[in-house]
């Protein structure tokens, strides 16, 4: 039986791996170059028996101007998870579409397009709304979208809400000045 370490080694040799993190014996994250992602995914799916796509998700590293995209794959033969990560520029956020590899990829890509503003050219229905029909403004999962400000601008707080900070309140009242 192939082990996860073998699979990672194969990826390292064939495609090159930028970074590797063994989180648990059954969970490893590898980082590959953006242009290699689709080949790595196909290789993992077809050769290394990582046949199950668990999910695709992104993280906004605003301070570094990058998005991290993570493809998490599972191998049912040896029951291990392998996360394939890549970083793309935040300025020109687009990624190669992997919709041809698994049936659910198009949905994930549609969601990432809506929530992060990452484009996946060629992905079916990628421009359709997913959960946010009628949304205006920046994609809400980006770090620069401030949920508190949004809710303060959009909704009303209940009347009569006001709070006091104990430290300041005591300073005001105890007159040690």
């Amino acid at each position: 039986m192939k082990t996860i370490l073998n699979s990672v080694k194969n990826i390292e040799q064939i495609f090159g791996v930028l970074a590797k993190k063994i989180q648990r014996p059954d969970l490893i994250f590898i980082t590959v170059e953006k242009k290699q992602v689709l080949s790595v995914l196909s290789h993992l799916r077809d050769i290394e028996e990582y046949t199950h796509l668990v999910m695709i998700t992104a993280i906004d590293y605003l301070e570094q101007g990058k998005f991290q995209i993570l493809y998490l794959l599972h191998n049912y033969k040896n029951n291990t998870d392998l996360g394939v990560k890549t970083f793309i520029s935040r300025e020109d956020a687009h990624m190669y579409s992997a919709h041809h590899l698994w049936g659910q990829v198009a949905t994930y890509q549609r969601e990432l397009h809506e929530m992060f503003g990452i484009d996946f050219p060629g992905s079916p229905r990628v421009n359709e709304n997913f959960a946010l029909e009628g949304w205006e403004g920046i994609p809400p999962m980006r770090r620069d979208f401030d949920t508190l400000r949004y809710s303060q601008e959009t909704y009303n707080f209940r009347k009569g809400r006001a709070t006091n900070d104990p430290k300041k309140y005591m300073k005001k009242n105890l007159h040690k000045e």
Binding site: V54, M55, T57, I59, D60, L70, L72, G103, Q104, A106, T107
Partner: peptide, 27 residues
């Protein structure tokens, strides 16, 4: 599944929930 990423701060950097209905009810 839960994917949790932390960045050393007091808040999670990102939490992604993998619900099985995501694939079952959509694609």
């Amino acid at each position: 599944g839960f994917y949790v990423a932390t960045d050393g701060s007091g808040f999670p950097r990102k939490v992604t929930v993998r619900g099985p209905s995501y694939t079952h009810a959509v694609s």
